[in-house]
């Protein structure tokens, strides 16, 4: 693995580790994050992982441009991918149903699968969290079974209910807060994803893995889920 370091701002460097999206990259990115945090210490302001890159924002009052590169070189020397313990594995309950997942049947029709097969395929894989963005706690996960892959909605919804589980192309995500959104919604989780009372604020962190566990309506409600319908877009 050859890491390219590029200037992106006065106090930010982009570390390019890979060229394509692959779940196998995440343990490497996670290992790099841990090493860089340790090496930069309080001179690190923020470190933003995303699919193939790490953006490193450092404090120029503590660390100069040359020293920053030296610290990066030291941190990445003999890097080994993080093991199973590197990221956490989360099991997230999902009520897959047309009432809260208006694109469930559309996805079935597109893929030539039955609704229950769509649910099986979507929940049958432990996804990797590639990056968080778009909104606090919004985790971009993948990779979704290629047969399920579907483009974003032509017209985004103005309101996608908090907890909605959705997919776009080969990525999947859950909406931490009610917000606009253009992904295909197939169900809803009762689990809180972003809460300032949570340790670390966000349940999902870059490099974590997520398995969606289908639950029925009663169990969804028992866990505090809100079953207010999400309208299908014509």
């Amino acid at each position: 693995m050859k890491v390219r370091v590029e200037v992106v701002a006065m106090d930010c460097l982009m570390l390019r580790l890979f060229d394509d999206i692959d779940e196998a990259h995440m343990p490497w990115l996670l290992a790099a994050v841990q090493r860089l945090r340790a090496e930069f210490g309080p001179g690190l302001i923020d470190l933003v992982p995303s699919y193939t890159t790490l953006m490193l924002h450092y404090d120029v009052q503590r660390i100069g441009a040359v020293q920053a590169r030296e610290l990066i070189a030291t941190a990445l020397e003999n890097l080994q991918p993080a093991g199973e313990g590197g990221g956490r594995l989360h099991e997230i309950p999902v009520w897959y149903h047309r009432q809260v997942g208006p694109e469930l049947e559309l996805l079935a029709a597109r893929s030539g699968l039955s609704v229950s097969q769509v649910i099986e395929r979507h929940s049958g894989h432990a996804y990797h969290v590639f990056a968080l963005g778009f909104a606090p706690g919004f985790a971009y996960m993948g990779l979704v079974d290629p047969q399920l892959a579907a483009p974003r909605l032509a017209t985004p919804r103005k309101r996608v209910t908090r907890g909605s589980v959705a997919l776009a192309e080969r990525q999947t995500a859950t909406y931490p807060q009610t917000s606009p959104g253009g992904w295909n919604v197939l169900g809803r989780t009762p689990t809180a994803l972003f809460d300032r009372a949570l340790d670390g604020y966000s349940l999902l962190q870059p490099g974590d893995r997520v398995r969606f566990m289908p639950v029925d309506h009663a169990e969804f409600l028992r866990q505090g889920g809100d079953d207010t319908p999400l309208e299908a877009l014509a």
């Binding site: 701002a9 394509d20 992982p49 995303s50 699919y51 790490l54 953006m55």
Partner: peptide, 10 residues
């Protein structure tokens, strides 16, 4: 591009 971190002032 594949989405990546964006700094202030980009």
């Amino acid at each position: 591009l594949i989405s990546e971190g964006i700094p202030l002032g980009a």
